[in-house]
Design a protein around this nucleic acid. Structure first.
Lengths: 209, 209
DNA sequence: GTCTATAGATCGATAGAC
DNA sequence: GTCTATCGATCTATAGAC
């Protein structure tokens, strides 16, 4: 019983963090949902900040090695098609996050979005410190597909693409409400990604055919 | 002296809200920065939630009538070019927000991004209630430029586009750090928009030429 | 490793004098 | 309209018994 207290906390925390954001989720809410004692969070994780990192680490440790593998096998193709095929090759690794936890893929992206503008850079620094090499590899692969686009232009386009993804998932609850109200359509992560990849591929590749 | 207390509060609040987010900004921090008494916020605005709405209302009341005017004069052109020209026509109204306040355009977009995933829909409901007509007009104009794209596909692309914009500005502090470190390049709102418009125009228009 | 109890800080909001 | 003072609620974190 004692052994899975950490996991119970992680599971409860990620759900609440994704729904409400980090700041607006209290340790009391987390421990109540996990059905564990309030003090156990600090015993197992030391602090709330560490808990936030631990929640994301569970996903990054699964995702990043797969991305490294995909990038190592990746064949460079230039232009929109190349960007799109590169991005599509990242989809299966992303989808395996739902093996970590039910709805894991959606949770992960939501958490990423929350982290980007709620933690004042703490989370970003944590990511770049622990997984910076994988991120750099992805940027290099993208650059190889678009040799005519210069560095800082590619920098912009990549962040617009991240914004599209992260914002859409971070506000997916709002979007779900809108989409279901307007179109009576269910919103799930796979649908978002399949709509997203062509969008950002076009945007990233720009005017190149 | 008494007369501009409301304005002092609004100015201090918007700066802190944009920097730190709504939840993480206390009324004490706001009143300290505004150099007014703590109790004056509740006297003038009633609550923190009302203050948040008042901060955004200052910008919406300037922006939305201009967007209505632009849309009324807009000539429909289909395809990527039409989308791009439509979006470009929204840039001047956006830029006038810097007349409301120094750096007003950037502040507004940052606040919008914060509001979208920090206020649990309160702000979105406020916007749609007070300015929903203008938003609907913009969507209709976009649809006219892309008659071959169906409703829910356009819905997705539009939200990706909003995500690109809002995320980029909401995390502009982080992006500024990265950009200046990597490319020694200053990041300002005009630069973001000029990079963004082609990106989202391509993305929204999709495969249509 | 789990619990109770509580320290210590901070929050939004308000009562009431001026 | 502005101020002091404070209420009552909430928060993270920890000490110490078991």
């Amino acid at each position: 019983m004692a052994k899975d207290t950490k996991v119970r906390i992680l599971n409860a925390a990620e759900a609440l963090f994704a729904e409400q954001g980090f700041t607006q989720t209290s340790m009391r809410a987390i421990t109540a949902r996990a059905d564990v004692n309030l003090a156990s969070v600090n015993y197992h994780f030391g602090s709330k900040k560490n808990l936030i990192q631990a929640v994301l680490k569970r996903y990054f440790d699964v995702l990043m090695p797969q991305i490294d593998t995909v990038l190592a096998k990746h064949n460079v193709v230039t232009g929109v098609g190349g960007v799109q095929s590169l991005l599509m090759s990242l989809v299966p690794p992303m989808m395996t996050l739902s093996n970590v936890r039910p709805k894991g893929t959606a949770l992960f992206v939501q958490l990423l979005g929350r982290g980007y503008n709620e933690t004042q850079g703490h989370l970003r620094r944590f990511i770049m410190h622990d997984y910076g090499k994988s991120v750099a590899g992805l940027m290099a692969a993208l650059h190889a597909s678009l040799p005519e686009v210069d560095d800082h232009e590619l920098f912009w386009r990549l962040h617009f693409a991240i914004g599209s993804f992260v914002f859409s998932m971070a506000s997916s609850q709002a979007l779900t409400e809108i989409a279901e109200a307007d179109f009576n359509q269910d919103v799930d992560i796979q649908a978002v990604i399949l709509h997203l990849v062509p969008f950002v591929s076009q945007g990233i590749a720009g005017h190149s055919a």
